[in-house]
Design a protein around this nucleic acid. Structure first.
Lengths: 210, 210
DNA sequence: GTCTATAGACCGATAGAC
DNA sequence: GTCTATCGGTCTATAGAC
């Protein structure tokens, strides 16, 4: 088994256990056992627990970014992209009801003003907001794009907590339907390309995303 | 200093530290130090850490219940009661942005299927939902009352996480304005007492709350 | 009732043999 | 690179003097 494999296994086990049991409640011994690697060996790959946690959360960050790229590349309609993103959380509703959102959990658990792990987790939510903002912008809602994007992610996070509290995944399913309905109800205020013969109306929406 | 005073101080210190630093990250030594009580003495009042945590979260539960009673007794309009409840979270936006919601944090942190502390925290959210459901019911939205109440609490929880992630309390303030606007926009579908000469239309809404 | 001292388990992290 | 053994520290919880 290669060195890279063991490192990857450690990161994956850490990500799972942090999600299921929380950051501070998960020990390095737990992670090593889950990855089937002797505890002392962990420190060959990561100098501290924080470093391993950072690698775990960074991996999640990249996975989400890859998902946004996939949506952007395969769906031409920004509205449809948003709806598919919402449907993702519907798909993982059982897992989120049981364990909470892996990102929201870390943000809730740690100090976002000092802890670099929590700050990286916060970036994951920030990435979603930036991406969603871009989609709302492309629907012509330039002024409200950031507010809408934040409301959307807040709706997902809030639904997860309510579902976990009541141990009822239908809470997430109902809230995701509500959010999809909301996104569907938004008018497309964007100037249509064909109708006025412009090629770069997207530029406004794109510059609005940073 | 009386025995009851020391017990109360321990519970209050525990509630504060659990909110600020999290349940599993707060040690009994931290709590004892904050309450200015020797560590060994803690076990005279509480047999285990869980027992102290349960007392702390139960106290919060009662404080919130008292607040609902205060709203019910002083505001005749259920819509106004809901708006005042939302405004509470606007008032504590700075604290929630920094430390998260004291209830949501515990639910996120612990296993709601096994941990009795997390289950009590879940009851606090359940109490809010029941109370809000009653208000929506009294506005005549009997069929949607529970869904509306859950969406409202989810909006508050989600806004808190987004605010903590971005370290920007204006996120909570904006989302609370959105929720107030939403509550204000709901029509009053309730049959008016004076107009049809009935005295007990409330009964339907009240039975809907359980 | 109050407090000191400490047991016993577990934590993150390190040293060093192989 | 890999793993065992273990250190020093902190945790919950207890024993027992006052």
């Amino acid at each position: 088994m290669s060195t890279q494999n063991k490192r990857d296994r450690l990161v994956e086990s850490a990500a799972i256990l942090f999600h299921h049991n929380g950051l501070s409640a998960t020990s390095l011994a737990d992670i090593a056992k889950h990855a089937d690697i002797p505890i002392g060996n962990v420190y060959y790959y990561f100098k501290t627990k924080e470093e391993l946690a950072l690698a775990a959360i960074s991996k999640r960050k990249e996975q989400f970014s890859a998902a946004y790229r996939l949506l952007d590349d395969n769906l031409p309609d920004p509205r449809q992209r948003l709806i598919e993103a919402i449907r993702y959380f519907d798909k993982v509703s059982a897992e989120y009801t049981r364990y909470g959102c892996p990102i929201g959990k870390i943000i809730d658990d740690a100090d976002t003003e000092k802890d670099t792990v929590a700050q990286t987790a916060a970036q994951v939510l920030g990435d979603f907001v930036s991406w969603a903002q871009q989609q709302f912008g492309q629907l012509g809602h330039n002024d409200d794009a950031q507010t809408y994007a934040t409301t959307l992610m807040a709706g997902i996070q809030g639904a997860t907590i309510m579902a976990k509290a009541s141990r009822d995944e239908s809470v997430i399913k109902k809230e995701m339907i509500r959010l999809v309905t909301w996104v569907e109800s938004l008018p497309n205020k964007r100037i249509q390309l064909g109708k006025i013969g412009m090629r770069n109306v997207d530029a406004t929406a794109a510059s609005n995303a940073a």
